[in-house]
Design a protein around this nucleic acid. Structure first.
Lengths: 231, 231
DNA sequence: TATTTAAGTGTTAAATTAACACATATTTGA
DNA sequence: TCAAATATGTGTTAATTTAACACTTAAATA
């Protein structure tokens, strides 16, 4: 007789992961939604998700699901929260763990898996998604905001070379407020994580704007240290 | 034939909740651990936990488990994170959602359920608990720190009447640093959530220290508004 | 009545944040 | 060719917030 108590009498439940996939391009911050192709709510928009398998962690599941849709690996992901309301998925009792992912749309040369009928939506123009996905998006966005104010995130969302204006646009779209150009530049420069290149980007102005890239070493240092931005 | 796709082929897993129960009394910030009474690791210290049942939410499960141990209801709890490493519970594959709870030890007149062999430990003197519970505690503490800097929390942890010194002790033990007395008082008073009573507490000084209570209305207002303390 | 102990109380310097406006380079159209 | 239009680039000052700092007071006890 073993003294090890097994958990045979306990309930097992379906566990899902759902990903709030944020992207950024010249048009601003966007999220990636997929069109649901089965009932109920067939045709409605939804976060990309999937079920946790017996032999994988939640992070692995979230990465697997993201990979299935985008083909991408090594994408920055972070757990947001778990959702467990009883009727949240009308098909069957399921709890879901939400993640957020950061992708730079223009840079990564990926094709969305056509089987999933996915589409990028500017944050403010996204349709209302199914179940409790709206709440997941809202909480993921809160997390992203805090992240942006305490750690550098541009590396995940911006192309390798970018203008100061693009960086400011990124922060403005995450924080959902206009920032003063000079104050923003002063703050960013104080971090000393940017390297100004000789090249200029001429796509948005006649004068041209200097391109910058991140100083990877100092950038990573700031990830560890953290900071406390008030923008 | 139904168009509704069921999830029959998906894996189901055991889902647990584990609670990092913080308490505060004259001796400082403490956590409540229970002695595990079955193998493996019988006799080791552990967070109080339990399994999610088919028909309850994670919050309900966490409250149920807390109630089982303490008899208390309506305790402040907040979800921290989910843990899903494959071998985290050697008995069987289980994922766990950690919560933190705030209890004011002296005020609540509760008896710990003896069946669980529970004990309060000062944060710095707690034994190393089983599995990944140490990580849960660390992350819960991080959350508590941020909470303390952005929302009032004293109501949950302090007795109804308390001295300014007790409030400062609370913050010092959560933030794990000494604070300047005058600056602390100035900051707290700026919030305008305290009411100074005529009574004094004489247990810690000959002179006696004024007792305070929270202005409940303004306190709740600050919960909604939030603030950004830098102590 | 001298000593001890924790409580109580404000001011100033330093650092951070917020507010603010004009010149420049280049293209385009008159 | 020159005027107009447009986005880029750049510093200073005021206002606010935070950090540093020391002495007096009340009461108990020796």
């Amino acid at each position: 007789m073993s003294l090890i108590r097994h958990y045979n009498s306990e309930d097992k439940v379906l566990v899902a992961v759902d990903s709030v996939i944020f992207g950024f391009d010249r048009e601003g911050l966007k999220i990636l939604l997929i069109k649901r192709d089965f009932e109920p709510q067939k045709g409605a928009w939804s976060l990309m998700g999937g079920f946790l398998k017996k032999n994988e962690t939640l992070d692995q599941a979230a990465n697997r699901v993201l990979h299935e849709l985008t083909g991408l690996d090594s994408i920055y992901m972070e757990q947001v929260s778990s959702y467990s309301a009883l009727g949240r998925d009308p098909v069957e009792r399921t709890i879901s763990v939400a993640f957020f992912a950061l992708i730079n749309i223009a840079q990564h040369d990926f094709k969305l898996n056509k089987a999933h009928d996915a589409q990028w939506f500017p944050l403010s123009q996204a349709p209302t998604p199914i179940f409790d996905h709206q709440q997941m998006i809202a909480e993921a966005l809160e997390r992203l905001k805090r992240k942006a104010l305490t750690n550098p995130i541009g590396f995940e969302l911006l192309p390798e070379k970018f203008t100061m204006r693009q960086l400011q646009d990124l922060y403005e779209s995450i924080l959902n407020e206009k920032l003063d150009k000079r104050n923003f530049i002063n703050k960013i420069n104080a971090l000393e994580i940017l390297i100004r290149l000789e090249e200029k980007d001429k796509t948005t102005s006649k004068k041209g704007a200097f391109l910058y890239k991140f100083d990877e070493e100092k950038y990573n240092q700031k990830i560890d240290e953290g900071f406390n931005f008030k923008l």
